[in-house]
């Protein structure tokens, strides 16, 4: 923790080498978190890069009374939310009726040989049918397993607003899942 402080203070003073060390220290954590939003290598690298670029620009605002990693994760969560907004599906995608071959959502990870990577892709595909805020919230809640309080703090929402949003997001998710033969349990 003290080493964090030394490095961050050096970076705040404009030391690029110190910031390099910060990146080396935290890029795997940030990558793991943002991997929940997209498995695409290009998108993932873009998001990780953007997280550290924004962190560099916002460094003067960081105060030592808050853990640096928590602050960094907050930036990463917002990058994830922006990713969801940029890659939002048309609202009509939720109205797509199954054809004779079925609906793409019917075939997600239904086979036994599916890897955990396939399952993650499937979960991301299902969540991509939700509005961006819901998608980001449920990604952090169900995949990153962050507590709701922390998610609210990351997105600058009140706890009540986060609870209401989570309830509505789960309802929308349940509708989609039920329609395609999944159970929430």
């Amino acid at each position: 923790m003290d080493e964090d402080l030394v490095l961050v203070q050096a970076a705040q003073a404009g030391d690029l080498d110190a910031f390099d060390q910060i990146i080396t220290r935290y890029q795997s954590t940030v990558t793991a978190m943002l991997h929940r939003f997209s498995v695409s290598r290009a998108d993932l690298e873009d998001m990780v890069q953007e997280t550290f670029v924004r962190a560099w620009r916002a460094l003067p605002q960081w105060r030592p009374d808050k853990p640096f990693l928590h602050w960094l994760k907050r930036i990463a969560a917002n990058i994830g939310l922006e990713f969801c907004r940029r890659h939002q599906r048309s609202p009509f995608s939720r109205l797509v009726q199954p054809t004779e071959e079925g609906h793409p959502l019917d075939h997600i990870a239904s086979h036994e040989g599916a890897t955990s990577g396939d399952d993650l892709t499937g979960v991301q595909f299902i969540l991509s049918h939700l509005p961006p805020d819901d998608r980001a919230l449920l990604t952090l809640l169900h995949l990153e397993q962050l507590p709701l309080n922390e998610i609210a703090a990351h997105f600058g929402w009140s706890k009540v607003k986060a609870k209401v949003k989570a309830f509505r997001a789960r309802q929308r998710l349940k509708t989609i899942l039920t329609r395609h033969g999944y159970t929430l349990e």
């Binding site: 690029l16 795997s28 943002l34 990780v48 890069q49 997600i108 955990s116 399952d119 929430l184 349990e185």
Partner: peptide
């Protein structure tokens, strides 16, 4: 098909370990 089971398996998917953005960020 259970969403819970699907997310549990999805959580175990490992992120690529060779992502290095130092040069790009600098």
């Amino acid at each position: 098909r259970s969403w819970d089971r699907l997310t549990r398996r999805a959580r175990s998917a490992s992120a690529p370990e060779d992502v290095d953005v130092r040069a790009a960020v600098r």
